[in-house]
């Protein structure tokens, strides 16, 4: 165990954990916006897959990372239109429609990959960018300030989303639509419009999550997300629908995963326990979820389509 507690190993482990947490954080932040307005989107994973493929394909063809990220976000936005149309306008049962979106993303991203790419080829991933001065801080600099730009963006979005939700009129309308849509409607708030906007934003975030995952891996593969989108939905519950809580859950999941890998590579976890240890991130997060979920209440109108009274 002593070899784990060295500056170099701790730095690389925490840095890896933060990078692993980023797709979860982006997707869960977007899902938080939707759920606070009353819309649960179980299609996040499918949207991430489609966005990851779009990012991959554009990067492969153009070698332009920024354009590739925009393609991923655009794909998320497009799927947001589909999701909002089905869940908000058509008022479908949100769980079922979300699963439909997920299955569509899973199958269609693979279909596109097989038809448009075929043999997998790697793309050029963006380099890590150190923040001047901060990245020179011993140990902490390497942990936190020498990451991919998308990692910084994800963590910067946490206070932004928190501010929007808690300190703006738009945030108030979101919360009203999620807690008591009838009351919000009576005060002149267009519940449908608010929910459309949060679903579009949330799906765009999911697209960005897919893009960040793809750029981390540098290649696309069928079911690349490995259900990360579903974990992101669970992390919204873990985080009690608060951006800071969602960030804590994402970091917990990412860091536990990175620590387990490091312990394996150092021989701290014996081979006989390797497979059991691989389940640790999920087990710890579920246990934490069970503990946290008892203390907070979900938005009252979550998952309920809103129909104005006659």
């Amino acid at each position: 165990m002593s070899q784990f507690f060295t500056a170099a190993v701790l730095t690389s482990t925490v840095a890896a954990g933060i990078a692993l947490a980023t797709p979860f954080l982006l997707a869960a932040l977007g899902e938080t916006l939707g759920q606070r307005s009353g819309v649960i989107n179980l299609g996040v994973d499918g949207i991430m897959l489609l966005a990851a493929f779009a990012t991959y394909y554009v990067a492969l063809r153009t070698d332009d990372v920024l354009l590739a990220i925009l393609a991923g976000m655009g794909t998320g936005l497009l799927m947001g239109v589909v999701t909002a149309a089905v869940s908000v306008t058509l008022k479908a049962e949100q769980g079922i429609s979300g699963i439909g979106v997920y299955l569509f993303g899973l199958g269609f991203s693979d279909l596109l990959f097989q038809k448009l790419v075929g043999t997998p080829l790697p793309i050029t991933t963006p380099p890590q960018v150190g923040i001047p001065l901060l990245d020179q801080i011993p140990v902490l600099g390497g942990m936190f300030f020498d990451q991919s730009p998308l990692v910084y963006l994800a963590f910067l979005l946490v206070p932004v989303v928190a501010f929007v939700l808690n300190h703006t009129t738009y945030g108030l309308k979101i919360r009203a639509a999620g807690e008591n849509p009838a009351a919000a409607d009576s005060l002149g708030v267009s519940v449908a419009r608010i929910r459309w906007s949060t679903v579009l934003l949330g799906c765009t975030f999911a697209g960005l999550a897919g893009a960040s995952l793809l750029l981390y891996d540098g290649i696309f593969q069928v079911n690349l997300t490995q259900s990360e989108g579903f974990i992101a939905v669970a992390l919204v519950y873990f985080g009690a629908w608060r951006p800071s809580g969602v960030m804590a859950g994402s970091l917990l999941y990412g860091l536990v995963g990175a620590i387990i890998l490091t312990w394996k590579s150092l021989g701290i976890i014996p081979l006989s326990g390797s497979d059991l240890a691989a389940t640790a991130p999920a087990v710890i997060t579920v246990l934490a979820l069970l503990f946290v979920a008892r203390r907070f209440r979900q938005p009252a109108a979550l998952g309920k389509p809103y129909e104005r009274e006659a």
Binding site: S12, V222, S265, A278
Partner: peptide, 25 residues
């Protein structure tokens, strides 16, 4: 030569992270 078994045949991110962990070590 200490192998890392990720627990998954298909999780690309875990393999990438395991490789990065090895490189950093």
């Amino acid at each position: 030569c200490i192998p890392v078994y990720t627990g998954s045949f298909s999780d690309v991110s875990l393999f990438a992270t395991a490789a990065k962990t090895f490189v950093s070590n």
